[in-house]
C-alpha cells in the first residue's frame, strides 16, 4: 500500500538530510493505520528516517563516525499466562502457571547489525532491547522457576511468530539514512503499536524517537467484533436467529 508514496517520501528525506552530527532523528512510516478486513493476510510496513543535525543546539553539521539504528516495535500489552503440563495419575494436566503482567502481545526487534556489536548488554537490558529484558519487566518473581517460565514463554512467542529478532532488518541506504521493512502477519493482534527507533553511535544512544500506529479491524469485521463485546446479548440473539434461519432455509431448499 502506498509504495510510490513511501518511495517519494524517502527520496525527499534523502535530499534534505545531508551530513549531520546525529543529534536528531527524522522518521516516518508507510501506514500509521493498518486495517484488517475479511481478506487480510498480513501487511508489510516500512519505517524510514534520517539523521539530521540539530542546528538549534549549535551543531555545525559535520558528520562524525558511523551510526547504528535499532527499531523496537511493541504490540498492545495484556496479561499473559504460561502453563506447564505434568503427568498426574497417568494423564497430562496443567499444573504450574506463571502470570506475566502487561506483557507485549507482539515484538519485533530490528537492527543494522547484531545487537551485541552495537552496544553492551547493560544498555540493551536498560532499554528493553532483548526478549529477556522485555520479559524481565513483566515478571512477578525472579526465582529459578520464574526463569524457566520466562525462557519458555519467549520460546513459544518466537515459535508463534509473535516475537522476532532481525539483526539485519534495518538497512542504511546512506550513512545517515535508514529504512526497515516489517512484515505484520495475518494473526497480528489488534490495538495500538509503539515503534521506537534508537540511534546508536559508538555504543551510546544519541537519539531516539517513538511513533504510534494502529492495527484495527475495519468495516464488517470491526462491526462484528465490537457488537460481540458491546451488545453481547443482541449479538447472541442475532447468532441464534441466523442459525434458525439457515437451518429452516436448508430444509426448504432441499425439501427434507
Amino acid at each position: 500500500m502506498g509504495t510510490i508514496r513511501v518511495f517519494l517520501a524517502i527520496l525527499v528525506m534523502a535530499l534534505i538530510s545531508g551530513p549531520a552530527t546525529a543529534q536528531r532523528l527524522v522518521s516516518s512510516m508507510s501506514d500509521p493505520e493498518i486495517s484488517i478486513d475479511s481478506s487480510f493476510a498480513g501487511e508489510t510496513i516500512t519505517l524510514f528516517g534520517t539523521v539530521a543535525s540539530d542546528f538549534e543546539n549549535g551543531d555545525t553539521g559535520v558528520p562524525a563516525g558511523s551510526f547504528d539504528v535499532v527499531i523496537a516495535i511493541h504490540g498492545p500489552n495484556s496479561d499473559r499466562v504460561a502453563r506447564l503440563k505434568q503427568r498426574t495419575g497417568g494423564i497430562w494436566i496443567n499444573r504450574e502457571a506463571q502470570v506475566f503482567r502487561n506483557f507485549p502481545s507482539f515484538v519485533r526487534l530490528l537492527s543494522t547489525s547484531p545487537l551485541s556489536n552495537i552496544t553492551d548488554a547493560e544498555v540493551l537490558e536498560a532499554e528493553g532491547l532483548s526478549f529477556e529484558a522485555i520479559v524481565r519487566r513483566t515478571e512477578p518473581d525472579d526465582g529459578p522457576r520464574g526463569a524457566l517460565f520466562s525462557s519458555n514463554l519467549i520460546r513459544m512467542m518466537e515459535k508463534e511468530g509473535l516475537f522476532e529478532l532481525d539483526e539485519r532488518g534495518v538497512t542504511l541506504l546512506s550513512p545517515t539514512f535508514y529504512s526497515a521493512r516489517v512484515e505484520l502477519p495475518a494473526f497480528v493482534p489488534n490495538g495500538t503499536f509503539l515503534a521506537t527507533t534508537f540511534l546508536f553511535q559508538n555504543g551510546e544512544i544519541v537519539a531516539r524517537k517513538a511513533e504510534r500506529f494502529e492495527v484495527r479491524t475495519a468495516g464488517f469485521e470491526r462491526f462484528v467484533g465490537e457488537q460481540a463485546k458491546r451488545n453481547s446479548l443482541v449479538y447472541g440473539l442475532v447468532a441464534v436467529l441466523i442459525a434458525l434461519f439457515t437451518g429452516w432455509l436448508g430444509g426448504v431448499l432441499f425439501r427434507r
Binding site: S78, D79, R80, V81, A82, R83, L84, K85, Q86, W92, N94, V99, S105, F149, N152, L153, R155, M156, M157
Partner: peptide, 9 residues
C-alpha cells in the same frame, strides 16, 4: 510441548 500460553482477559 509441556508448556502452553494464553492471554488472561
Amino acid at each position: 510441548d509441556p508448556f502452553s500460553m494464553a492471554i488472561v482477559t
